[in-house]
Design a protein around this nucleic acid. Structure first.
Lengths: 412, 412
DNA sequence: TCGTTTTAGTAACGCAACGTGCGTTACTAT
DNA sequence: ATAGTAACGCACGTTGCGTTACTAAAACGA
């Protein structure tokens, strides 16, 4: 096998230039461009661009459309990338829901399908819901399985991307060890990818979120669990053992500030999650509002069957002193962990996602304040995710799209 | 400017293939290869390889040597990369010494020059020592300034690589703000690079140290100061603000376990350095050996003018209970910070350098023990650096070599 | 000593892809 | 109707690759 890649003939030039023209075309406005535009963006001559476009047209990747813009001179033919030639699916398998999105090769989302997972659904049941969701989403888009070029599944837990299954998934019983990728591949007959949900969410934030084009980025999922996805120098980084960014397991050696000797919420949680996860925040809020210090909020937080902490942030937003104090303590704890992450990674930007990000600046402003002095250089920007629950499934779509690049160049 | 890189003519093929042949030749054993060898490694035909070699010979990058291996058939001519065509210099500007190494384009070190920095030398004086060291090293190699293709300077502190100067260097007074790169470039008339010392050391460990070829790597400099250099997916990562891996400033929120309310040793040190830096270890050892618990060691540590902690590890190696206890507490503290780094970065391997690495397994075995349970997956390998004080200067050589790649391809 | 074998180098040919230059086409404006 | 403009497309020359055929140089064996 050649160690240094060499060009073994003029056909290599064609490959390079066809790929260059296709890339330029896909990056153009609405994936439509005139020959003259492609000449300038690629630096190629007119015959070269025309030849490349002819190849792409033969492969059905490109079609010619008339130019409507009435200007002077002979109207230009415009080449359009046929994004409808193939489609990809992104799937977010969460503990409570399954989200499926179908997009074309331009990344345009055609359909979205949402399935609420029944409580205590087992792994095989979840898998059946995934396939059902895919079927319905594909059908709703007017497509068949054969139109899918790639599918990417995002799931919590630790993922074995080589074997295509989940190694550890505490939040979905029986999901770990299921051969998700092989089974899906057999059903769909297309490449199937699997990745950790947070690793995909960070891709989405860089693609269509609040960190577009950022070169080094940290996405922190802040909810019951705490995890992070990393993008370093433009590429996702998962670590040597697919365990990079496990902020939830950071042990700051902090004394548990609340008096109740709280047991580990459930198996497999880490120290930092037990300190500032949603459950810990709820407990802290209940404890700090007890004794009549804030009867209203205490009542809301301890209502039967109620574990939601939204009332806490609502109260803090209106200035309730106790709620503000709770939020401030939560922010201080969180900033200690996030500060360590920023100190070691030095990202260009941090995006906070997950349930806690709904609190917005009510929570993030104190976090930013407590970060001051913890990071070395100029303050790193901390933003709330704007993608909401779509982050993971959009990242899955993006990852699936990326995987189709080689199939595209192979066609032409 | 072209957004997608295209091939604008057959000459691009030549460029590709000349570069491929040169790369294959440089990667070959002793940078010597027969045409047949290059054919197999590049996948090119014999005439193509011959043409590429002719170009390289015209550019004086390659010469032909006779084949000594007596085998049947017509003896092959062998192409040899003329590593002596150019040279690079690496410089390590430390607080106590300046190291200069001159190497040829194959990375073979020709000369090494060492200058002890006078105590309290100012920035300009240090700069003069650097130029003097470069002059002498170049002369000792039988070269002139014109033979230098690139120079890389490694220095502690935070480095502004764009402006080519040090922003913050607490250990060398007056060194920060000096226009090191512009001045050196004017004197030497060649590209001059500057980088943080630890960022360079990690390059050396991957090149000629104990982590050859490792794709994701953390190098921890453990001495008076504590800093890290990161390699992620094969490329050095410095962070968005050139502040990645600042482990020394990690604040674990640990209570200062020693009774003495120790003041900050000097300006600009971080919490973790104040906890397990060499000075902190010395103080801890003095405190824990006091009160007659280990008179011999206490006397060695408190000898007039003595701040060295080597006796501590010597005593621990021979099994002195108090010394072992001190080392164990140091290791526990250090493992907490290193564990955080491993948890967040998930590197393939960790290399410990700096003065403390001289303690070897006496210190690292306890560190490994205390790391168990702090990292999520299988235990990450922790090794002591084998490069000693050469790590930074070797990394500077490697970085300078890397920067010559484009000049090489431009020549051919 | 000389032919045979084996491997290396080189020249000639055909093919493919590039850029350049120029004629052609199609539409607008006067 | 005619001039002007902008895009299209073909012919040409150049370059570089692979293939093929031939020559050159050394070791081995008769």
């Amino acid at each position: 096998m050649p160690s240094a890649t060499a060009a073994t003939g003029p056909h290599v030039l064609r490959q390079i230039n066809v790929a260059a023209v296709l890339t330029a075309l896909r990056q153009a406005e609405r994936a439509v461009a005139r020959v003259a535009d492609l000449m300038t963006t690629t630096g190629l001559s007119r015959p070269a661009v025309t030849r490349a476009l002819a190849d792409l047209r033969d492969a059905d990747l490109v079609e010619l459309v008339a130019d409507e813009t009435t200007r002077i001179g002979r109207p230009a033919q415009r080449a359009r990338f046929r994004a409808e030639l193939g489609h990809v699916a992104g799937v977010d398998v969460g503990p409570h829901k399954i989200l499926v999105k179908i997009a074309d090769l331009a990344g345009e989302v055609l359909t979205t399908h949402r399935i609420a997972t029944p409580p205590a659904a087992t792994g095989p049941e979840v898998f059946d819901l995934v396939t059902a969701g895919l079927d319905q989403a594909v059908a709703a888009a007017g497509l068949t399985h054969a139109d899918l070029w790639a599918v990417c599944v995002g799931t919590p837990g630790i993922v074995d991307r080589d074997h295509g299954e989940v190694v550890l998934a505490p939040s979905i019983p029986g999901w770990a060890g299921l051969p998700v990728v092989p089974q899906l591949r057999d059903q769909l007959h297309c490449p199937v990818l699997i990745d950790n949900d947070v690793n995909l969410a960070v891709l989405a934030e860089r693609w269509r979120g609040t960190a577009i084009g950022v070169e080094s980025l940290v996405f922190v999922q802040w909810g019951e669990r705490i995890g992070t996805g990393l993008i370093i120098d433009g590429a996702p980084y998962r670590g040597a053992h697919a365990a990079a960014g496990e902020l939830g397991f950071l042990d700051l050696g902090l004394p548990p500030n609340d008096p109740t000797g709280r047991p580990a919420a459930n198996e497999g949680t880490g120290p930092f999650e037990r300190l500032v996860g949603a459950a810990a925040i709820h407990e802290l809020a209940v404890a700090m509002t007890a004794g009549g210090r804030d009867r209203d909020l205490h009542a809301q937080l301890t209502a039967p069957g109620e574990r939601d902490i939204a009332p806490l942030f609502a109260a803090a937003a209106t200035g309730s002193p106790v709620a503000v104090a709770v939020v401030d303590r939560v922010a201080a704890r969180f900033a200690q962990g996030l500060g360590a992450l920023i100190l070691l990674m030095d990202p260009e930007q941090v995006v906070i996602g997950g349930g806690l990000s709904r609190a917005g600046d009510t929570l993030l402003d104190p976090v930013r304040r407590h970060l001051v002095g913890r990071t070395l250089s100029s303050p790193t920007e901390v933003r709330a995710s704007t993608l909401g629950e779509d982050a993971v499934v959009l990242g899955a779509v993006r990852h699936a799209l990326d995987s189709t690049a080689e199939r595209l160049t192979a066609l032409a």
